[in-house]
Design a protein around this nucleic acid. Structure first.
Length: 231
DNA sequence: GCGACAG
DNA sequence: ATCTTGTCGC
């Protein structure tokens, strides 16, 4: 699944190594729509990770939904040991090893993957969602729950309203209201997509709640897997 | 140098 | 992320 030239011989251990790999991988991100147009995706996967720092354990989940009905059609989990500390800007190195393993457990490849975090909205424009997209070749988007270090003006009150998410003078994503009057979510492009398309996908997935159904399902599943030490 | 900082 | 009680509202 991972293209040969992009797979490191060994996972980064230090921040310096991780930064070097990030600089290398970021050249492969595609920021145009070669993934599914909004409404045309057949299946959409959500991925998320839960931790037990006491036991140095990590559990990842990948849940595939029917994009039209939002029904669960497939799911997989993976448990392992934490491979990297939490460092803002290097989250991918902490989360993705387990996520990749969970994705490998799926019966079929999804049309789109929704990440719990950022994509292009990142200090070096290579967040979790971009990283996962480059490693898998799949279209990905990032949907985060907090604005990180970025700035935004509150979007309109209604579902579907959005406002630019800014890193200085550069728009890196959108603050998107997914339900009337709720706090916005923070959407950015991952791989093979754009912020505009990512917002449209997010709205379709956040039909009933603030967060996309993909994220809600994956969050629930990885927590359960962590407690049960499922594989 | 110090604090802030996706999850 | 995770630690955690009650509480307000549909």
């Amino acid at each position: 699944m991972t293209p040969h030239p992009l797979r490191p011989r060994r996972a980064p251990t230090t921040e310096e190594e991780a930064l070097a790999l990030q600089r290398k991988l970021r050249r492969y991100v595609l920021l145009e729509d070669s993934g599914p147009e909004p409404g045309t995706a057949s299946t959409v996967a959500g991925v998320d990770v839960a931790y037990d720092d006491e036991r140095d354990a990590v559990a990842a989940a990948a849940v595939v939904l029917d994009a039209r009905t939002l029904d669960v059609v497939d799911e997989a989990t993976a448990v392992g040991r934490v491979a990297f500390p939490y460092v803002p800007g290097l989250l991918a190195f902490r989360e993705l090893p387990a996520v990749l393993e969970a994705l490998n457990g799926l019966a079929r490849t999804p049309d789109l993957v929704v990440c719990d975090g950022y994509g292009f909205a990142h200090p070096r424009r290579f967040g979790l969602a971009c990283h996962l997209g480059v490693l898998t070749g799949l279209p990905t988007i990032g949907v985060a729950k907090t604005p990180f270090t970025f700035r935004y003006e509150p979007p309109g009150h209604g579902r579907g309203s959005s406002a630019p998410l800014m890193d200085g003078d550069e728009e890196v994503g959108r603050a998107l209201r997914t339900q009337d009057g709720v706090k916005p979510v923070f959407v950015s492009a991952g791989h093979r997509t754009t912020a505009r398309t990512a917002c449209a996908h997010t709205l379709q997935l956040a039909r009933d709640y603030r967060l996309p159904e993909t994220t809600r399902r994956a969050d629930r599943l990885c927590r359960r897997a962590l407690r049960a030490r499922h594989v």
